[in-house]
């Protein structure tokens, strides 16, 4: 168990690492990485049974970043946990790096599933939860999805299967920042009531402020108590959170930072 101050500090570090990595890489996805800082901090450093010294440990909980373009946030969390060396952060998206543009489980221990093609990570998470069920193991599986990702049909195939198979070790977290590449979710493809959709598929649904450490701790504890059905947490987030000029701007989904942007973002996050 970590204190609120520790988790806040981790989230702050994750954000700083994300900007450092993306600034050096000169490509990648800042908006949808920055908004994951608190969720990843609380999961990795408080909620999950996870040993950074032994990422293959049999009793570990699994985290699948289904929205694989948020890879810098995942790498930052793994770095904060000690799985990645500091100098390696500068290799993001470079030839030969373990830090691929989208997570590659064959390259980097700690990456449970190779994701990036949207929707599949959530379905893979369902498969892992099925394996734990077959083996009678209590390991929990957390899958982080983007809201735009919910456009993918496979998400709803997987949701149907998770409820049908009573995967109560599976917890979906929807990073609901309201934006995707071409604009606001509902302008691109109407999502309707996300919580109601998951509930109608048989999930126990929770809503939370995705940047509130206490609220996140509380909601994950509640989700863990759900029995016989999977849980879905709709986390309200701000895309680009922490860097004022990136917040709520779909333009920063996958835009490279200029040197000035990089310096300005760093200054904000260090302040």
């Amino acid at each position: 168990m970590a204190t609120k101050n520790e988790l806040t500090e981790k989230a702050k570090n994750i954000r700083r690492d994300i900007i450092e990595m993306l600034g050096q890489a000169k490509s990648g996805h800042p908006g949808g990485s920055l908004d994951l800082a608190e969720i990843l901090s609380v999961l990795y450093f408080d909620v999950m049974n996870y040993d950074f010294g032994d990422p293959q440990k049999e009793d570990r909980d699994y985290l699948i970043l289904s929205k694989g373009h948020g890879a810098p946030a995942l790498y930052a969390a793994l770095y904060e946990g000690g799985l990645i060396e500091e100098e390696e952060l500068a290799t993001l998206r470079r030839l030969g790096s373990r830090l691929q543009g989208h997570p590659d489980r064959k390259k980097l221990p700690g990456v449970e599933a190779s994701t990036g093609s949207l929707g599949q990570g959530f379905a893979i998470a369902g498969g892992i939860a099925m394996a734990m069920k077959v083996q009678g193991k209590p390991n929990r599986v957390y899958a982080i999805l983007g809201d735009g990702e919910l456009d993918e049909g496979i998400v709803w195939e997987a949701a149907m299967s998770a409820a049908h198979n009573h995967l109560d070790h599976l917890c979906a977290i929807v990073d609901h920042n309201g934006l995707q590449i071409d604009g606001a979710n509902d302008d691109v493809m109407s999502l309707g009531d996300i919580g109601a959709k998951f509930a109608s598929f048989g999930f126990e649904v929770f809503h939370v402020d995705g940047h509130d450490i206490d609220a996140l701790k509380d909601v994950f504890a509640k989700a863990k108590e759900v029995r016989e059905k999977p849980a879905a947490i709709i986390a309200e987030t701000v895309k680009g959170k922490g860097v004022s000029f990136m917040e709520n701007d779909p333009g920063w989904h996958g835009k490279p930072m200029s040197d000035q942007d990089f310096a300005a973002a760093k200054a904000e996050l260090e302040g």
Binding site: Y62, R105, G119, A123, I124, G127, I128, A129, A131, Q135
Partner: peptide, 12 residues
């Protein structure tokens, strides 16, 4: 979903 769940089961 069957194919992706298969991948997850293999990871497990």
């Amino acid at each position: 979903n069957m194919a992706a769940a298969a991948a997850g089961l293999a990871i497990g």
